[in-house]
């Protein structure tokens, strides 16, 4: 598998006065990249441009240096799993994947279709009509149709939507395999945990802007490295509270029935202080839980930065 690289260079896309993607620059290389962001952040628009279905209003999208827009040849390299469910419902799974193989002009479409269906483990249902498939099966047969020409680049728009836990796991394994093979895999999602489990590299979109980019753990650390709400249970909440107040790293300490709520100003300093103070005062810590880890706050943090 020769590695392929997608480049997005100062790309914007607007619909009338509505800007869906706003001056985004990123490079997507081999391995799994997660495109993360809330609904309406411009993920689908960006994938549309990467897949050559939308013209950038400004900037350029290239695949290994070649412009993607109006260039059907890029589809020899790109496999696409669209978000919309519609497929050719009147075809059987086999016919659908075979047709996709033929459309790619493969020399042995039958063998390719067979291989692709085996990859997604859908041989058992290949004789049934796509219209009768469950969501997960549909997603898999769409995946097979995207894999049929063994593409170096795989683009997936919200692939986990509507899948049950088992189907999710299965697809994740499949994508991991694709990434390990050296393919460039990009998938979009608005669920942080999904991305966390799958992607080494993430690109975060917020309101059309490219909000963050890089190694997942690194970003996660950047995201969590900020003032925090903590809930603490200990053997002596009152004693702990006064010990904490004595230090400057807490903005507020509140004590109500056997729970101590702390607002830390300097996150790192507070977390380092806490075990030390507790130890020195001989107070046993039963629970230390950050409470504002919700994605809402993570995203709003990114918007502000």
């Amino acid at each position: 598998m020769s590695p392929s690289v997608l480049s997005v260079d100062t790309v914007s896309r607007w619909y009338g006065n509505v800007v869906a993607v706003n001056d985004v620059t990123m490079t997507i290389g081999p391995g799994i990249t997660g495109l993360l962001g809330p609904n309406g952040a411009g993920k689908s628009t960006l994938i549309g441009m990467l897949a050559g279905f939308l013209a950038p209003s400004a900037g350029s999208v290239t695949l290994d240096g070649v412009t993607v827009w109006k260039n059907p040849d890029v589809y020899r390299t790109i496999g696409l799993v669209p978000e919309r469910e519609a497929a050719y419902d009147f075809l059987t799974g086999w016919q659908f994947v075979l047709a996709n193989a033929e459309l790619h002009g493969l020399s042995d479409p039958g063998a390719a279709a067979k291989r692709a269906l085996a990859t997604v483990e859908m041989e058992f249902a290949q004789g049934r009509k796509v219209g009768e498939y469950s969501k997960g099966m549909r997603q898999r047969v769409k995946m097979a149709s995207a894999l049929v020409h063994d593409p170096a680049v795989l683009l997936l728009d919200e692939p986990f939507n509507g899948m049950d836990p088992r189907q999710r796991l299965h697809l994740m394994d499949l994508l991991r395999q694709m990434g390990a093979d050296g393919r460039t895999v990009l998938f979009s999602s608005h669920i942080l945990e999904e991305v966390e489990q799958l992607a080494q590299q993430i690109e975060v979109m917020v309101a059309g802007r490219h909000a963050a980019s890089g190694d997942f753990r690194e970003i996660r650390r950047l995201m969590t490295d900020r003032p925090h709400q903590y809930v603490i249970r200990s053997s002596d909440d009152r004693g702990l509270a006064s010990a904490l107040i004595a230090d400057g790293s807490t903005a507020g300490v509140q004590l109500d029935d056997s729970v101590l709520s702390v607002e830390a100003v300097s996150f790192l300093r507070f977390t380092e202080l806490l075990p030390r103070v507790a130890r020195d005062a001989g107070i046993r810590l039963y629970e230390v839980s950050p409470t504002d880890e919700s994605l809402e706050s993570v995203f709003s943090y990114l918007v502000k930065s």
């Binding site: 050559g52 279905f53 059907p72 040849d73 919309r84 050719y88 996709n100 459309l103 149709s145």
Partner: peptide, 10 residues
């Protein structure tokens, strides 16, 4: 939207 399967081909 199923036209994508035709359009995403060379």
């Amino acid at each position: 939207g199923s036209i994508v399967y035709l359009l995403s081909k060379p």
